[in-house]
């Protein structure tokens, strides 16, 4: 930080220009989306990257394409744009709610889906558990392979520290439309305006008998990184959408989480509230069914 020159910012208009600018800027250069995470680096006592390439003026990264079978979201789409575009679709309700409820309105006008995915070290990101439960795929472009994008399931993307950096740019997030209803339940400490201390996102399919046939459940903010709750997914298979019953199952399985202690909340609390959040999620799905 101290003594380093302030980082330059390139503002390209196309993806190839951006990739070229990123590789030209050299090691450590990074994409800059809404800026709401990167601009707070000084508050976190972190150094800025030596150079940035802004993505906000690249039209193709700002598109949302909703088709019957899949939805493709440009990485530079803001939370506000995402919430608005997805609001009609019940299968994408988890992502729409995550985008509509995160942070505050002005930050939602700036912060992007790509930025949320790439803000490593930010365990309370709202969109990430929603993307996990919706089985999202992340597309990544790099100058070395300008023609073909690399595609990674979001779980693999999160697990791979090398998925970003090194001249790569997350370009799109693609969701298969499963037709399952989805839901996003977050728990801020105040009514709103906080980062949630725990998040449950779920996409659940219910068969003709009113019993769960498929479930994808993701938990955010509880541990250092969001993850799927496969134990609960298996346990509720065949169950009715009974909030109390499923919350009780969640309570029995919650010890598999090791909550992160933070200044805002202790680890035990994040785990302790999970059954309540699962119950709320199931209640919301049952009400919508």
């Amino acid at each position: 930080m101290q003594g380093l020159a302030p980082p330059p910012v390139a503002v390209p208009r196309t993806l190839p220009e951006a990739l070229a600018a990123l590789s030209a800027a050299g090691d450590g250069a990074a994409p800059l989306a809404g800026g709401t995470w990167i601009m707070r680096a000084p508050i976190r006592h972190e150094a800025h990257a030596p150079a940035y390439v802004a993505l906000g003026r690249i039209a193709e990264l700002r598109r949302i394409d909703v088709a019957d079978d899949e939805v493709a979201i440009g990485a530079a789409v803001t939370h506000a744009e995402l919430a608005k575009a997805l609001s009609p679709f019940s299968d994408l309700a988890a992502l729409a709610a995550a985008a509509a409820g995160s942070a505050n309105p002005a930050v939602r006008n700036a912060a992007t889906i790509g930025g949320n995915l790439c803000a490593r070290g930010f365990p309370a990101a709202d969109l990430v558990p929603a993307l996990l439960c919706l089985d999202a795929v992340v597309e990544i472009a790099e100058a070395a392979a300008p023609a073909g994008s690399r595609r990674l399931p979001v779980e693999a993307f999160l697990a791979d520290p090398a998925a970003t950096g090194g001249g790569r740019i997350v370009t799109r997030i693609v969701l298969k439309r499963s037709g399952l209803r989805s839901v996003h339940v977050r728990l801020p400490l105040r009514k709103a305006g906080d980062y949630p201390v725990a998040i449950v996102s779920a996409a659940i399919g219910v068969g003709g008998g009113g019993r769960v046939e498929s479930a994808r459940i993701a938990v955010g903010s509880v541990e250092a990184a969001p993850r799927r709750w496969t134990g609960l997914e298996g346990a509720i298979n065949g169950e009715r959408l009974d909030p109390a019953r499923i919350a009780a199952l969640a309570a029995s399985l919650a010890p598999e989480f090791s909550g992160r202690d933070g200044v805002e909340a202790p680890g035990w609390y994040r785990v302790r509230v999970l059954p309540t959040l699962v119950g709320r999620a199931i209640a919301a799905l049952a009400a919508a069914a």
Partner: peptide, 22 residues
């Protein structure tokens, strides 16, 4: 840090926190 809103401006007509806007 984008929490308080005391630096709010309208950027192309939409609220933006000027502290986090490069």
């Amino acid at each position: 840090e984008g929490f308080c809103g005391a630096c709010m401006v309208l950027l192309d007509g939409a609220p933006a926190v000027a502290c986090l806007t490069p």
